[in-house]
């Protein structure tokens, strides 16, 4: 494992290794929640927030509890429990103390537990042997990259809302094709940096 600066990982995970455009992760909510820009920005923020903290937690749990005990194979269960518990905790805290925030972000929180991006970042972190700082950079970058993608998608969808489409292409079909076009644009970044 070559030492890569966390900043490089941060930018790479936004542009060259974008979670949606090059890893196909988080597609479910990407397709269904990308109808309006404010909503998708809200979801993006919530994802970035949860992503950053669960990755930190999972890093600590994996390296300081699971590895010493030789229980690496349990990581799937442990990671998903951490994520679910964290989301639940945040939801309760936000509901109790920040009522305004709850109405804007709160509705997205249950959706997040099953968002593949969250679990994927923790798994990539283990596979690629990232250090703590690298993991944090990767998590924040992935979150921002995902937000960028979903907001751009919402913008494109709003634009074509009133246009006529072939019947079968409406909904998911056209969303996928637009995503393909955007992904093609993001391939242009791929020469800058590469992370594995």
């Amino acid at each position: 494992m070559i030492e890569i600066s966390p900043w490089v990982i941060f930018f790479a995970s936004i542009f060259t290794n974008n979670m949606i455009f090059s890893n196909f992760l988080g597609m479910c909510s990407f397709i269904s929640v990308s109808n309006e820009i404010p909503t998708s920005l809200g979801l993006g923020q919530a994802v970035t927030f949860v992503l950053t903290f669960t990755t930190m937690l999972n890093y600590l749990i994996y390296h300081y509890i699971l590895v010493p005990l030789g229980l690496e194979y349990l990581r799937f269960i442990i990671f998903i429990i951490t994520i679910a518990a964290f989301v639940q905790l945040i939801e309760m805290l936000v509901e109790r103390y920040f009522t305004n925030l709850y109405y804007t972000l709160g509705i997205f929180l249950p959706l997040i537990t099953v968002n593949c991006v969250i679990l994927a970042v923790s798994l990539f972190m283990v596979i690629r042997n990232y250090t703590f700082l690298q993991s944090v950079g990767f998590a924040i970058g992935s979150g921002i990259g995902w937000t960028l993608a979903i907001a751009a998608m919402a913008g494109a969808k709003q634009r074509i809302k009133n246009n006529k489409l072939p019947k079968g292409l409406e909904g998911a079909g056209i969303t996928l094709i637009i995503t393909g076009l955007m992904a093609l644009a993001f391939v242009g970044f791929s020469g800058i940096v590469q992370i594995q």
Binding site: F21, S22, N23, F24, P166, K167, G168, L169, A172, G173, I174, T175, L176, I177, T179, G180, L181, A183, L184, V187
Partner: peptide, 22 residues
């Protein structure tokens, strides 16, 4: 081989399947 093609093919397959069921 690159990611964008998966989106395109998926979209087209969707289109085909939807028009067929319709």
């Amino acid at each position: 081989v690159m990611p964008p093609s998966a989106f395109f093919i998926m979209g087209v397959i969707f289109w085909w399947a939807r028009s067929k069921t319709e």
